[in-house]
């Protein structure tokens, strides 16, 4: 049993590594196939004043004239030693560029994700419980409206009302100048961006939870559970929730990088220094090294969260354990 457990862990780690490497090959190839000239990222407008020979020289220096395979091999070699190259645009180590901003994004996106995760579940449960009654209908209407409002518009509106007219909350940045370590100051700066992130995504996921639960509520086993003497609410969270959770988890596993990395609009409107802007700019200006790391960060997160969701789902619903079809009840997913 113990041996089996370690074997499964090693197997999963191997699978994880393989997926990350395949992903890096894909991102590497696709970014280089896209049209555009990376020299613009490095030299900006000055490229136009350079002679062809100078341009070729610059390419040679950045290692862009070698065959694609050699370029990838060199990148991979560097990556294994923790060297991800320099950003063409910022002309410093990619790690430094990202390190300066990733904390901000993790705070905004991470908090947003946690809030969405919990609130969507609660809201979905509540709506499923009150199916088609007044409360459910009102929430459904409001939810549809909020999820249809474009993020930038909502962001601008909130900015106008709370930062300009009422002047209750700060409208830009992640912290006031000189107060970098002040938690309260950071929290105040987070309120508006966080509201936009949560409102933009919340209803979509809550609605999925609601619908998944309503599917479960119509299942036969609900009648048997009610025959035991359970109330509708008890059946909902003791029985139906268990059936709906695996699909919610796998959905949220994909949603995590989506919410974390999808903060671009919010970051722009609130001048919030995060990696959302970086991701966009690096793709726009062929900043290959930066693009690689940003994409790999999000991609690794998707892969990791999917595996995690698979494992948790297997614990909730035994039919989802990979080996349970042949092994009877004894084999557990790890």
């Amino acid at each position: 049993m113990r041996k089996l457990y370690i074997g499964r862990i090693l197997y999963n780690i191997g699978k994880f590594a393989l997926r990350v490497i395949v992903l890096s090959v894909l991102v590497f190839t696709i970014s280089r196939l896209a049209p555009g000239d990376p020299l613009y990222a490095y030299y900006g407008e000055r490229v136009e004043k350079m002679s062809v020979a100078q341009q070729e020289q610059a390419r040679e220096r950045l290692g862009l004239r070698k065959p694609l395979f050699t370029q990838y091999a060199r990148w991979l070699q560097g990556a294994f030693h923790g060297d991800f190259g320099i950003s063409y645009q910022y002309k410093t180590d990619v790690k430094e560029v990202i390190a300066a901003r990733i904390g901000n994004t993790l705070i905004l996106g991470g908090l947003g994700f946690l809030l969405i995760f919990v609130l969507a579940l609660l809201l979905g449960l509540f709506c499923a419980w009150r199916e088609d009654r007044a409360a459910d209908r009102i929430i459904c209407r409001i939810g549809t409206v909020t999820s249809c409002v474009p993020e930038f518009w909502l962001a601008l509106l909130l900015l106008l009302v709370f930062a300009v007219w009422l002047d209750w909350l700060p409208g830009s940045g992640a912290y006031s100048i000189g107060k970098e370590g002040d938690v309260a100051d950071r929290a105040v700066h987070l309120v508006l961006p966080l509201t936009v992130v949560v409102l933009g995504h919340l209803w979509y996921y809550a609605f999925q939870v609601r619908n998944r639960l309503l599917e479960e509520v119509r299942a036969d086993y609900v009648l048997l559970a009610r025959m035991k003497g359970l109330s509708g609410k008890q059946v909902l969270y003791r029985h139906c929730l268990r059936g709906a959770l695996p699909s919610y988890l796998s959905m949220m596993a994909v949603a995590l990088p989506h919410i974390l990395g999808g903060t671009y609009v919010v970051e722009t409107v609130f001048s919030y220094p995060g990696i959302g802007t970086l991701a966009y700019e690096s793709a726009r200006y062929q900043d290959y090294n930066l693009l690689m790391v940003v994409s790999l960060l999000t991609g690794t997160m998707v892969i990791f969260c999917n595996m995690l969701a698979g494992i948790i789902s297997g614990r909730i619903d035994p039919r989802m354990r990979i080996h349970s079809l042949t092994g009877g009840g004894e084999v557990r997913g790890c």
């Binding site: 036969d220 086993y221 025959m227 035991k228 003497g229 268990r242 059936g243 909730i316």
Partner: peptide, 24 residues
């Protein structure tokens, strides 16, 4: 009714495979 269902009445259904919760 809940009181009554849990003590006086009980019911068995047509399809036992769907009447049991698959996750428990």
């Amino acid at each position: 009714m809940r009181e009554l269902r849990g003590s006086f009445f009980s019911m068995v259904f047509q399809n036992p495979m769907t009447a049991l919760n698959p996750c428990m």
